[in-house]
Design a protein around this nucleic acid. Structure first.
Lengths: 127, 127
DNA sequence: CGGCTTATTGACAATGATTCCCGTTATCAA
DNA sequence: TTGATAACGGGAATCATTGTCAATAAGCCG
């Protein structure tokens, strides 16, 4: 994990271990109920997720119901292809997007660019 | 306006007219207070915004506080360059992104692709 | 191994955007 | 004008997320 700014507690370890076993995005509430055996409080889950996002260890996106969904991510910058029905996701890289962000931001006088690219479609099974 | 599914009431007209005068994104609450002279209820504002989004007349994005922000948009597909400090936004088109979405989605067996691209940076005044 | 200092936890309350409810009001066609 | 129905609006309800704060546990030092 990069830039660990927090102590290693039982709860944090449990959360990270759980996330490692999980490929798809998950919400804080779902994490809470799927981890009930670990006896981790909901506040603690929210705090841990927020720290992990700040450390860059977690991907987030806000779904159509306004709920945040999380997933461990690699260290490379990447994007997601998501199925609008089942939520299945595929990571991909897009050097075009990186370049575009730099070029376009610079031309408008912006600095410290970040970018987000999401492709949403219907996957084969759900079509 | 495309595909008008609703009646033209005083309130809806007032909301659309207000949005026409407004270049930047605005939240429902802000719209409510800036339009208080027009005596439009908050529920009505939410309903109208939601309908306009469904009709494709309004762009939305969810800001970092989880609040939705709206703006009238043209009919062409476009993306946004946003300032992370002041929220100033610039529209741009990115044919690369369109192509990428099609190509990548298809290669994973996805169909009916949509995509979102956002570039976030710090604008000159806020730097 | 104890004790100390301080970050972390967790139960619960509070917040805040959005949606729901429902009696009232406006619109429109006949 | 009237009746049917869509839209309003204000307040209550919802629900994810954040704040509070006393109790607990990490990491550390001797």
């Amino acid at each position: 994990m990069s830039a660990p700014t927090k102590r290693n507690t039982r709860q944090r370890t449990a959360i990270i271990d759980f996330l490692k076993t999980r490929k798809e995005f998950i919400s804080a509430k779902e994490l809470y109920s799927e981890m009930e055996d670990s006896k981790v409080g909901l506040s603690t889950i929210y705090r841990a997720l927020s720290d992990l996002v700040n450390d860059g260890d977690l991907d987030v996106f806000i779904d159509n119901d306004g709920e945040s969904r999380f997933r461990l991510c690699g260290s490379h910058h990447h994007h997601h292809l998501l199925c609008r029905k089942c939520g299945k996701s595929v990571e991909f890289q897009a050097p075009e997007a990186e370049a575009l962000a730099e070029r376009l931001g610079a031309s408008e006088g912006f600095s410290e660019m970040e970018h987000r690219l999401e492709i949403i479609g219907t996957c084969q099974e759900c079509a």
